[in-house]
Amino acid sequence: MIVGSQKPIEEIWSMVKDFKKVLVFGCNTCVAICHAGGEKEAATIASLIRMRAGQEGKAMEVNHMGVMRHCEPEYFDPVIEEVKSYDLVLSTACGVGVNFLSDRTGTIPVYPGINTSFYGAVEAPGFFKELCAGCGDCIVHLTGGLCPIARCSKTLMNGPCGGTNHGKCEVSNEVDCVWYLIVERMKKLGTLEKLSEVLPPRNWSTSRDGGPRRVSVEHIREYEEQEAQKPETAGGKK
């Protein structure tokens, strides 16, 4: 899932301070699970903004709301008019949600209420770890199921660097050297000899190097296009 983390209140305040009517708009999927931007945290941030406004003696109406996801219109369409009645929407969705909503609120600005951190897993309750970089061309079948692109500080594709230190990365003792983990893992799987294969240079065009990416699932598109011909389309999951 996408992991986010909350912004300092001062940064938020600098974004919202000149607006009269602010909606803190929570997203109840990925960022809720990581306790960064679900409805609950939206309520908390709204409260903090009100208190901050109180400290400055500013009259400001700050409310909160939440929908299941900001990245699919079916979820926020039912409340979009209400959302647009505010001067500013502080979205606590990930950057995807903020962008997606921004395109759909006309003259109402949508600002980010949280930082979008990474794609990660819940290693322990309240502790999240980056495990994928979304490079668009997954090769972890070659590396024991562990990703050197996301988990090596240098994104090395050809084994550990000289900074590897008893299984830890030179960047920090809290960061595992993924190449150490890969070797250990592949030993256990009995596939270590695969590492001796010489691979062609990696094509990074599927990653950010190729510009903004899109994915089109043709059979779904086909269906949707047919649906669009009908006078009334299904509203999707509400």
């Binding site: 109840n28 809720a32 699970i33 306790h35 679900g38 409805e39 609950k40 945290e41 309520a43 939440g66």
Partner: peptide, 13 residues
């Protein structure tokens, strides 16, 4: 019915 969970729910569900 201790109520511990409700204030923790990130979705206010």
């Amino acid at each position: 019915a201790c109520g511990l969970c409700a204030p923790e729910c990130p979705g206010q569900a």
